[in-house]
């Protein structure tokens, strides 16, 4: 009863937040709209990562592989249709990019997900680098020369606002997907894998398929985000999308916010992006040190993330009462 009510409250709150976020560009300066884009992009990436990493406990270190595949396959497909209207190009690119991510992820899923813990993480790091290197060094993929993306914006609308709204749609869809997964049988299956994979399997949870499905969903979302991101930049090379810092950030968002929660990656992404781009944006040669320090402090002081910290504080209060 209370559970239902609290869920309803959450839904209402989320919808209100969504509407507020959609209208925000009306009052925000362009810089903050741009920061908003990055927050939404990062939050969606963090959520996509969390579907596998947060729910099932399989920490991928190679999420950038799918960002890159989505961006480059989508971009190459769009280049084939250079004469078509940009909106159509984008849709084709989206279809091609996400299809490529789905196929590649499905092919990779069964062998790679046999590995556990740190070995899975390392294997995904390797996968990301293999794709990055091939993308960069095989000429038809144009990774080294770079790929130009058509302007898909709507005439009269500031491109910053347009991409902000596009990222918002993507982030909202990702949140919805993650929420639906979380409360479904599939989601509980993933959680059981995180808690004890062997027992879960013994009790009849189809762990293999669940892991693979989560992997593919996570990859496709990353691919779609990668394509939108590439459009928002207008020109990318391999180094713009296959980035090790993205691999790492996807994890840090969850760690900072709260591992396995839905709100965690969103909070984490918002804090980290604002911190690195707004607060530390001015410093010529200090931001790397500051980011490093933040990571160290985070691991030592808030090992279960801000959500965990908040829960602990709230819990303590209740006990006192």
């Amino acid at each position: 009863m209370t559970r239902q009510r609290s869920e309803r409250t959450w839904i209402c709150l989320s919808l209100a937040a969504l509407v507020a976020a959609a209208l925000a560009p009306l009052v925000l300066a362009p810089f903050y709209v741009r920061v908003g884009q990055l927050v939404l992009y990062s939050a969606a990436l963090g959520l996509a990562w969390a579907i596998l990493g947060g729910f099932a406990g399989y920490w991928s270190f190679g999420q950038s592989a799918f960002i890159g595949i989505g961006a480059f396959v989508g971009g190459l497909a769009e280049a084939e249709l250079a004469t078509a209207p940009p909106a159509l190009q984008f849709l084709v690119g989206l279809a091609a990019g996400s299809a490529a991510c789905a196929v590649i992820a499905a092919l990779l899923a069964y062998p790679v997900l046999r590995l556990r813990g740190i070995y899975f993480a390392i294997a995904m790091l390797g996968v990301a680098h293999v794709f990055a290197e091939l993308n960069n060094n095989i000429d038809i993929f144009q990774g080294s020369l770079g790929l130009t993306f058509p302007n898909i914006g709507i005439a009269g609308l500031d491109p910053h606002v347009f991409y902000y709204e596009l990222f918002l749609v993507a982030a909202a869809a990702t949140l919805l997907a993650a929420w639906l997964i979380r409360r479904s049988r599939f989601g509980y299956g993933l959680l059981s894998i995180r808690e004890d994979e062997d027992t879960a399997r013994m009790l009849g949870v189809p762990t293999e398929h669940y892991k693979a499905a989560a992997f593919v969903v996570s990859a496709v979302i990353a691919g779609v985000l990668g394509l939108i991101y590439a459009h928002s930049l207008g020109y990318i090379t391999t180094g713009s999308v296959y980035r090790d810092d993205t691999n790492l950030n996807a994890i840090v968002y969850s760690l900072l916010g709260g591992m396995g929660t839905l709100i965690g990656p969103i909070i984490g992404a918002a804090i980290l992006v604002v911190l690195t781009h707004v607060v530390l944006g001015d410093f010529l040669d200090f931001h790397m040190f500051a980011t490093g320090l933040l990571l160290v402090l985070l691991v030592l002081l808030a090992p279960s993330g801000l959500v965990g910290l908040a829960r602990k504080l709230v819990g303590r209060k209740k006990v006192r009462r």
Partner: peptide, 17 residues
């Protein structure tokens, strides 16, 4: 001037500021 750390999205964001 600011450090873009060779990250295009960081550069674009801070140029926008």
């Amino acid at each position: 001037l600011f450090d873009d750390a060779s990250d295009p999205s960081r550069a674009v964001t801070l140029i926008q500021r």
